[in-house]
Amino acid sequence: KFGRVHERAEGPAKILAIGTATPFHWVDQSSYPDYYFRVTNSDHLVDLKEKFRRICNRTMISKRHMFLTEEILQKNPNLCSHNEPSFDVRQDILVSEIPKLGKEAVLMAIDEWAQPKSKITHLVFCTRSGVDMPGADYQLIKLLGLSPSVQRVMMYQQGCFAGGTMLRLAKDLAENNKGARVLVVCAESSAIGFRGPSEDHPDNLIAQALFGDGAAALIIGSDPKMGLERPIFEIVTTAQTFVPNGDCHLALHLREMGLTFHCTKDVPPTIAKNVESCLIKAFEPLGISDWNSIFWILHPGGNAIVDQVESTLGLEPNKLQATRNILREYGNLSSACVLFILDEIRKKSGREGLKTSGDGLDLGVLLSFGPGLTIETVVLR
């Protein structure tokens, strides 16, 4: 008597548009150690500064975009301390800036989509910054002038794996609601975790050397309108798992001094060791076991992770080039990073006149991972 209210779509979910945005301000990685130790009044920690310089040199990052300028840091000195309470200051900045950054990426996506924004039916927003109620999803709806009846899902504090999570959720929403057009937004800022150095917490140096700011937005829907919408990728399958006891290797915690970062040297080999089982589960039903026969979007948690995944799986050097390019130009953008790589690989395919948006290949994989050593596996066509 009370059956399904919403009719299912006929076809699989497809990515119809991609937009990205970054803050205008950026830092050069080669000179960042001098800048970082100067603005945090830590130049007296000579040995720690040299250690940080070595870490920065190993990241293979060229530059990173950041909202925090020297002027902002001078006005808010607690942000430059390692342990002073600064959460309220971070909140005041990020509750406002995260939706604005997301808006810039959304406008780029809508411009490519070339359809009225009134056709957006759902919003899925993800960030690890600016936790608030009502959330960044609500603020973004107002900034864009979208209908208050847009169906919203707000996900805070997920971390680097969440780019894949957003695709998984959007696929379910698009395929189970005929005519749905799902706006996916990942907006991230390193301002939540920026803090001064400490000899007692070397993990913090890794975070300060890796993370950048950026937002990515996608429009996802099934059954694209012929002649009006141009699909870029099809989302074939999605899956999530985590490595048992992985939280002892990688975890982040909200504290009075901001978001703290805990990471062990076992993260790269542990991820590399567990990736292939995810690939087998995803691609065995499709008859694929040659990992060089697919295109790759791999989250660059750090250069060591990229190198070890490449080595463990025997990947050809060009397979992870898009990942390395984004890491070099932006650093680790947390949940937004794989979506930047997705954009990079389709643009490169277009520039080179390849037959598909995925490096000329039919199928590919998007792998994202993060806290708890959670792994998201997304098969794309």
Rank of each mutant, 00 (worst) to 15 (best):
V243K: 11
W296C: 11
M257H: 06
N57K: 12
R38E: 01
D362Q: 03
E376S: 05
I305G: 06
L140R: 03
M66W: 02
V106F: 02
F37D: 01
N41A: 06
G364Y: 02
F2W: 11
H299W: 09
L259F: 09
P371H: 12
T237Q: 03
S62K: 14
L254S: 13
D307Q: 00
A251C: 09
D92L: 03
Q29C: 09
K119A: 08
P269I: 04
L48I: 08
K319M: 07
L259C: 15
H44S: 02
Q240A: 08
V243E: 07
L101T: 10
R90S: 08
F369V: 13
T20A: 08
A282L: 14
G11I: 01
K273V: 00
A251S: 09
P77T: 04
F340A: 12
N303K: 10
H65W: 00
G11H: 07
G302E: 15
F340G: 09
N245A: 04
V338P: 14
G331D: 10
H253L: 13
K51C: 07
S334E: 14
I15H: 00
S42A: 09
D47Q: 12
F87A: 14
A239E: 14
N332I: 04
V378Y: 05
L286C: 05
E97W: 09
P285R: 13
G353R: 13
L342E: 12
G3V: 04
I98S: 07
K319C: 02
N274H: 15
T22V: 13
G301D: 14
N57V: 03
R381G: 03
L342T: 04
N41D: 10
R381Q: 04
G287L: 00
I326Y: 00
I235C: 02
P371W: 01
T260C: 15
A282H: 14
Q308E: 14
E376K: 03
L250N: 15
K117W: 12
S62A: 12
L327F: 09
E84C: 01
G301L: 13
K347N: 05
R8H: 02
R8G: 04
R324A: 03
L259R: 15
I288S: 04
L252F: 10
S277N: 15
T270S: 12
Y32M: 13
P85A: 15
G246Q: 10
I72G: 09
Y138L: 15
D47R: 08
E256P: 01
F87W: 14
P269H: 12
L327A: 10
V275A: 05
A304G: 13
N41I: 12
P116N: 03
F261L: 08
L380N: 15
L313E: 03
I18A: 01
D88A: 13
I232N: 03
H82V: 08
V89L: 07
R230C: 00
Y35M: 00
K63V: 09
V236D: 10
D28W: 03
L367I: 01
E7K: 08
D34N: 06
F295K: 10
R346T: 02
E97A: 11
C263M: 14
N76P: 12
A304N: 09
G246S: 14
V365W: 13
Y32W: 04
G314P: 11
I120L: 09
E256D: 13
A251Q: 14
T374K: 02
Q308H: 10
K347P: 02
V275W: 06
G302I: 07
M108L: 07
C337M: 14
N303P: 13
S96W: 09
K75T: 06
H82N: 05
V5D: 09
L320W: 02
L315E: 06
S62G: 13
G11E: 07
I141V: 05
D266I: 06
F87R: 13
N292Y: 04
K119W: 09
V306I: 01
R8Q: 06
P285S: 08
E344P: 02
T374C: 13
S86Y: 03
S42P: 02
G372L: 14
V378P: 15
I141Y: 12
R38M: 04
M66A: 08
A251M: 13
L107W: 13
D307R: 05
I305H: 00
G246L: 08
E329I: 00
V27W: 02
N83L: 08
H262G: 14
Q115E: 04
P12L: 01
T323G: 14
L286F: 11
P116E: 12
T241W: 05
A105I: 01
V5R: 09
K265P: 12
T356C: 07
W26N: 03
Q91W: 01
D92A: 11
L380S: 15
T323Y: 00
L320M: 09
L313K: 04
L342G: 10
K119R: 10
L354G: 03
F340K: 11
N78V: 09
D343M: 00
I235A: 06
I297E: 08
L252A: 15
I93F: 08
A114Y: 00
L79T: 01
R328Q: 11
A282C: 09
H82T: 14
I55P: 00
E284C: 07
N274T: 13
